[in-house]
């Protein structure tokens, strides 16, 4: 049975059980998101996908689609909120894009371009979390982590290794590695693991593979993040 809701005036069909974000994406509509990934259950931490359903705000990644819903997403108000959320994420970490290997292929950066984020607006936190270079093939730069939890989910659900977790609370929340020493080198993480390639920002990086794609040919040089919407995510 085919049912539908309205997204910014467009009719969006859905299968019962789908979330607003899934249905919108399947119909070719872009709703900004960072922590959502088609292979995994929703996380609900980034809040970028917040839409208004029948006038009430909610995360499109967790809200179930219902027939006849009036969903607003691409509005000045909601995009303004999204820009503020992006600015919060940027000042919370050390997002020095000019030297980051993920620049041009980074979902956070591309989404910030999409939402016209010119500046940080807030005071910088400048976190000081040492990199973990203990693994022979994988580098971790924790100061870029946006706590999307995708590596946590990928490692637990796909790789069956549960190498990552988010520990601490509030501003102290941070990504940790599940080994006695807390070092990645003391885990059985492999470069072929799903968790090794899923980070949407520049935290989990393969060693000796930086800056391989020429500027102009990187993922988000070629197409904006909304045009990228239907492609396979990293």
């Amino acid at each position: 049975m085919s049912t539908s809701f309205t997204l910014d005036g467009n009719d969006v069909p859905f299968t019962p059980g789908e979330t607003v974000l899934e249905a919108a994406r399947n119909a070719g509509h872009y709703i900004p998101h960072l922590c959502w990934h088609p292979e995994f259950s929703p996380h609900g931490s980034c809040r970028l996908c917040t839409v208004k359903v029948n006038g009430r705000p909610g995360a499109a990644c967790t809200l179930k689609a219902e027939p006849g819903q009036l969903v607003e997403s691409d509005t000045e108000e909601l995009n303004g909120h999204r820009k503020t959320l992006l600015q919060m994420l940027f000042v919370e970490g050390n997002h020095f894009c000019p030297s980051c290997e993920k620049s041009g292929n980074c979902l956070l950066q591309a989404t910030a371009y999409q939402m016209h984020m010119e500046g940080p607006h807030f005071e910088e936190f400048y976190p000081d979390r040492p990199v973990d270079a203990s693994h022979p093939h994988i580098l971790l730069d924790f100061n870029r982590c946006i706590l999307c939890g995708l590596c946590v989910r990928a490692s637990a659900e796909v790789d069956g290794k549960s190498i990552f977790a988010i520990a601490g609370n509030s501003l102290g929340a941070h990504l940790v590695v599940n080994s006695e020493s807390g070092k990645l080198g003391d885990t059985d993480m492999a470069l072929a693991d799903r968790a090794a390639s899923i980070c949407p920002v520049g935290v989990i990086l393969p060693k000796r593979r930086g800056f391989v794609i020429p500027i102009g040919e990187r993922r988000y040089d070629v197409a904006t993040v909304d045009q990228n919407g239907q492609q396979e995510l990293p």
Binding site: N94, F96, P98, S99, G119, P120, E124, Y126
Partner: peptide, 18 residues
């Protein structure tokens, strides 16, 4: 006008902050 990454968020020189 804040021009460039350095004026905007400290830029790469701010890597000395730790």
């Amino acid at each position: 006008v804040a021009v460039g990454a350095c004026a905007i968020n400290g830029g790469l020189p701010a890597q000395r902050n730790h």
